[in-house]
């Protein structure tokens, strides 16, 4: 579904990703772990289509060259990024935002737009995924939301848009244990054999809830180590210094 080959990304002359390779198939959950500043969020931004980088290498998504698609086309093709720092947009209601997004995606797929009633029913149904009970209709997107609410709102949007490939960037950061459970449950509910998820995280604790098929360690702009879910536990025990030493010793 997603194939990244020899991806180099730099911003203002500074190279952040230095030849990254990754392949994700339908039905899989991948975790990308790594210390701060190694390029985890940059990878998510590049896939989303943020246009501030110099990029070489290739990203193929569902057989298409991702770089040929605009930001919105990527989303309409089923890519969803759960952002680490969701933007506050005063004045745009969540209802209006999601209705517009859902219907633009439907139109792209040749489907009729949802009627007002059908949309509201869908929204009520999907709110349950992340245990949102509050009325959203009068609230602006992320405005005045706590950190936890913002992350829940991201997963709520994911539920609404039913993406094929979800990339969750540090979705666990800033969450207390209850919010973490709710967010993780939401992600698990949305998992099917046809979609794929990439979880980007600093800590292993999220992976207690969202169990990955593969764990990758990103270090110095490359994936330096991949393994089964037990790798996350090992990382937690030994710390990133372990990776650092092995990497610098040329063992990885």
């Amino acid at each position: 579904m997603l194939k990244i080959e020899n991806l180099h990304v730099s911003i203002k002359g500074k190279e952040i990703l230095k030849g990254l390779n990754l392949e994700v198939k339908r039905g899989e959950v991948h975790a990308i772990m790594g210390p701060n500043g190694t390029g985890k969020s940059t990878l998510a931004s590049v896939i989303a289509g943020k246009d501030i980088y110099d990029v070489t290498g290739s990203i193929t998504y569902k057989g298409k060259n991702l770089f040929d698609l605009s930001i919105e086309e990527r989303a309409r093709e089923g890519i969803f990024i759960g952002f680490q720092y969701p933007v506050e947009i005063p004045g745009v209601s969540i209802t209006n935002f999601m209705k517009t997004a859902v219907n633009e995606v439907r139109r792209y797929k040749g489907l009729e737009p949802l009627t007002g009633g059908a949309f509201l029913r869908l929204m009520e149904e999907k709110k349950k995924v992340v245990e949102l009970t509050a009325k959203l209709s009068n609230r602006s997107v992320n405005e005045g939301f706590s950190g936890g609410e913002k992350k829940r709102n991201e997963i709520f949007q994911m539920a609404m848009l039913e993406p094929e490939l979800s990339i969750l960037d540090e979705t666990d950061s800033g969450l207390d244990i209850d919010a973490l459970r709710i967010v993780a449950n939401g992600v698990n509910q949305l998992k099917t054999k046809d979609n794929a998820t990439i979880v980007i995280t600093h800590y292993q604790r999220l992976l207690d809830y969202i169990v990955p098929d593969v764990v990758h360690v990103l270090y110095d702009g490359k994936i330096v180590k991949s393994g089964p879910k037990e790798l996350a536990v090992e990382l937690e025990e030994k710390g990133y210094d372990w990776i650092k030493h092995e990497y610098e010793a040329g063992l990885l």
């Binding site: 989303a48 289509g49 943020k50 605009s70 930001i71 919105e72 990527r74 989303a75 309409r76 990024i81 952002f83 969701p86 933007v87 947009i89 005063p90 004045g91 745009v92 209006n96 935002f97 999601m98 517009t100 997004a101 633009e104 995606v105 792209y108 602006s140 997107v141 949007q157 848009l161």
Partner: peptide
């Protein structure tokens, strides 16, 4: 606001519509 534009577009909303939503807000 460019960040808001990016956020809206990353949910599948076209550039023109995203602009309109922000101006409306």
């Amino acid at each position: 606001n460019e960040d808001a534009m990016f956020y809206l577009r990353s949910r599948g909303i076209g550039e023109r519509t995203a602009r309109m939503l922000l101006m409306y807000a």
